[in-house]
Every structure is written in C-alpha cells, then in structure tokens.
Amino acid sequence: MRDFSQDIDWLSINTATIRKQHGQEVALNTLLDQCASAGIRAVSPWRDQVAAVGLNSIAAQIRAHGMALSGYCRGGFFPAADAAGLRAALDDNRRAIDEAKILDAPCLVMVVGALPGALDGQAHYHDIARARQEVLDGLAASLEYAREVGMPLAIEPLHPMQAADRACINTLEHALDMCDALDPDATGALGVALDVYHVWWDPKLQQQIVRAGAKRLLAYHVCDWLTPTRDLLLDRGMMGDGVVELKKIRQWVEAAGFRGYSEVEIFSERNWWQCSGEQTLQVCKQRHQTVV
C-alpha cells in the first residue's frame, strides 16, 4: 500500500467538500484558488459549480494551476416518467461527457438515478425494476458516445438508503454486473467510482473490489460514517471521525491495482460547511496523511 504519510501527492478534493464556507455557497473559481494555495494538486468539480462560472474559464484556471482532475461529477439520472424525459436525460449526459472531455477528466462519475420524481417527493412510478432497466438502457446509449470521444464512465453505487430517489444501483456487485453486461471485455470505457460512504458496510466489499480490478476501479472517494448520523445526505464525517476502516479498504483497493487519487468528498451542513475553506483543507491534508 502506498505511503501517504509524507506528502499529499495523491490527495484530491471533491469541490463539494468546501462548496459552502461559514454556511454560504462559494464560487468554484475561489475554491480552486484555495486548493492551489493549500498545495493540493487534484480536484473533482461538480457540473453546477462549473456552469455557474463558465466551462472554458474553469478549464483555463485548472490548467493555469497545473491541476489534475480525479473525476467529474456527475452524469446519470436516467429514469424518467416518459419517452421525452428519457431523451432529455440522454441529451444531458452527452453534454456532461463533452464537459468532462474539455476539463480533461479521467472519468465522468455516474449517479444513475432511481424512481423519477422521488427527489421532489412524488415518484411518477414505483417499479424499481423498470428504473433499473432504464438505467441499463441509458448507460448503454451514453457509453456508445463516450467511447467515441474517449471519456470513461464510472458508475457510483449509492447506499441503499438512496435507492428510491438518487440511485437504484446500491452495491458494488450490482454496478459491476452492469459493467460486465455493457463492457464484457473490460476495455476501460466503463467502470466504477467507489465511495466508502456508500459501500463500507457491504459484506461482499473485498470480494467485489478484487473482481473489479484496476480496469474497473476508476475513482475512489473517502470520508467517514458518523455515529450517530444526523442527516443521511448532509452529515458525512471527516476521515478518522467515524467508523469506516479506511486503511483496510484502501489496502484492498490498491491490492486490486488502483493507483489513483483518494478523493475527499464530504457533505457536511452542520460541521465542515460552517468552517472556512482553509480550515477544512488543512484538516483534509492532515487526515489524508494519517488515517486514509
């Protein structure tokens, strides 16, 4: 396993981690400057943050700072109430692929979606098998275009608590089953984004990480699971503050061949989003060197 104790060369910051500071939203161009000032060499930005500043402007800023990307968040949300909605999702994912290419991202992270309308409190249908089929169909169509432009897609399985509203793929095994169905030769065009927050609990985790191997492991996200968790979406913990066996999981991931960044992705409405970006980044650096 790589030694992270002496430097932060393999630390990446998902920009959600510092998107709010002192409770207020902060623009992505400011976040990138903060990361650069902290000596952080890689980031993973969100599409809405990029759009708010401008794609070309952000691409130029990333190049000027000499930064790499560990991923681009996010594509997906394929299921829809009707045919028009399905077409709109495919169009949006095509745009996301193009954006990821302009930013020179190593992959586009796919949060695949679930029961359409559920995020707004009223699902248009309750058939989760239908949603999973629409995800499979949407991934197949998006993968065809992604192959053309050379942008790998990384399916992110989410914790089962989000099966209704955000992602109906909830285990690494299920994500890999979809990869095998759509990319049976493991060409590198389709893989997974492994977020410890969503998968740490899975009794098959080590087995499925071995199955994934280097060709399928496209991104690795770290944070921690707090006990108690006060909000299942917005109360992620800083690494070392919760119960996830971070070093053990990274050992498994690296034994399977992963050599990319450990990307810190923390949604923390009551804690880290109340701090300054500089404070949060300093703790991220320290925890990366000691507990990740």
Rank of each mutant, 00 (worst) to 15 (best):
D7V: 08
A256F: 12
D177L: 09
W252V: 06
A146L: 12
G117F: 08
E269K: 14
H288W: 04
A181G: 07
W201H: 03
T30A: 10
A186I: 09
A167R: 00
Q122V: 14
L32W: 09
A89M: 08
K101F: 07
A59I: 02
Y261G: 01
G257V: 05
Q162G: 00
S268T: 01
Q251R: 14
G76R: 04
M161Y: 12
Q34T: 06
R94E: 12
P152G: 04
D48Q: 13
A129N: 14
A255L: 13
Q49T: 11
G121P: 06
T17S: 15
D48W: 15
L31Y: 05
R63L: 10
R130E: 14
D241W: 13
L69M: 07
D82E: 09
Q208G: 02
D231W: 00
A36P: 05
L158E: 01
G188R: 08
Q34M: 14
C73D: 12
D185T: 15
L218R: 05
D92K: 12
I249C: 01
E144A: 15
R270Q: 15
A16L: 13
V192G: 06
E173D: 15
A16K: 13
D7N: 15
A84G: 14
V53G: 06
C179R: 07
Y125V: 03
P106W: 10
L119Y: 02
G75D: 00
A51K: 08
R95M: 14
I62L: 10
S5L: 02
T171N: 03
E156G: 02
V291S: 10
I155D: 01
W252Q: 11
L158H: 02
V222P: 00
V53Y: 05
W225I: 07
G277I: 10
T171G: 06
I97C: 15
N271I: 08
D98R: 11
L69F: 06
V222W: 05
Q61F: 10
Q133M: 12
